[in-house]
């Protein structure tokens, strides 16, 4: 699997993503600076990593979404190439029009950094084949703007076309208001593009691939990708 991790000024989770890919798949990803205009030849997977690109100026992800390399990322996605957009990467993907909706300030106005359970809504995608449908996995979240907002029509389409990837839930897998950390519509923690090749998610699967740092429930996502690409 050839992975390319896009690095913007202010990205800070690119090494976490790279370490997860290398640890789980054995492949060393390329790090691609935002000013590049092309992806490395043969790229299977693009990762938009977490962080605070451009200091969250204007809106989270807004400036990064207009970076030169994003035309190449959009073309990759349009060809059906895999894109994994995590946290700030999810914000960038929404701002870039790769995914619908927007991530707004958490409803409690606080930056939230904690362990969090998610339901795997479907286990038949390139990102989730190593999970079971409905399984509750525990990863972590670290964000101030993770409150997923979209208009009623978009939400209806996401639900109707089964494009919700993960929802916030409790340890028993129950999706409840109490388990929703940031006010996201329908408890949405991640969504797919209609082609199921772009996944945007606020939680950090890349941080839970080693027992040394608290958990391994994120491994399944990278194992799935290794099989897919």
């Amino acid at each position: 699997m050839k992975a390319a991790i896009i690095v913007f000024p202010g990205s800070n989770r690119e090494r976490d993503a790279g370490t997860a890919i290398h640890t789980v798949t054995g492949h060393e990803p390329a790090y691609v600076w935002h000013a590049e205009t092309a992806l490395p030849a043969g790229t299977d997977l693009v990762v938009l990593p977490g962080g605070f690109s451009y200091g969250d100026y204007l809106r989270c992800g807004a400036i990064a979404a207009r970076a030169g390399v994003m035309d190449a990322v959009r073309a990759h996605a349009a060809r059906g190439g895999l894109v994994l957009a995590i946290c700030n990467g999810f914000q960038i993907a929404c701002e870039a029009g790769l995914l619908p909706g927007v991530l707004m300030r958490n409803v409690n106005r606080r930056f939230i950094c904690k362990r969090q359970f998610l339901t795997v809504e479907r286990a038949d995608t390139a990102f989730t084949r190593r999970y079971r449908q409905g399984e509750a996995i525990e990863v972590c979240i670290a964000h101030g703007e993770g409150n997923y907002v979209a208009d009623a029509e978009t939400l209806k389409r996401l639900e109707g076309e089964n494009l919700v990837a993960f929802r916030y839930c409790d340890a028993r897998g129950q999706v409840t208001d109490a388990a929703n950390p940031n006010g996201s519509a329908n408890g949405i923690a991640g969504i797919y593009s209609p082609g199921l090749n772009v996944l945007g998610m606020m939680p950090h699967p890349e941080n839970f691939v080693d027992d040394l740092v608290g958990g391994t429930d994120g491994r399944g996502l990278f194992e799935s990708l290794a099989k897919a690409a």
Binding site: L58, R59, A62, R66, E95, P100, G101, V102, M104, V149, A150, D151
Partner: peptide
């Protein structure tokens, strides 16, 4: 349209 506003919200 392209940058200053996110017209979704």
């Amino acid at each position: 349209e392209k940058l200053l506003a996110n017209t979704v919200v």
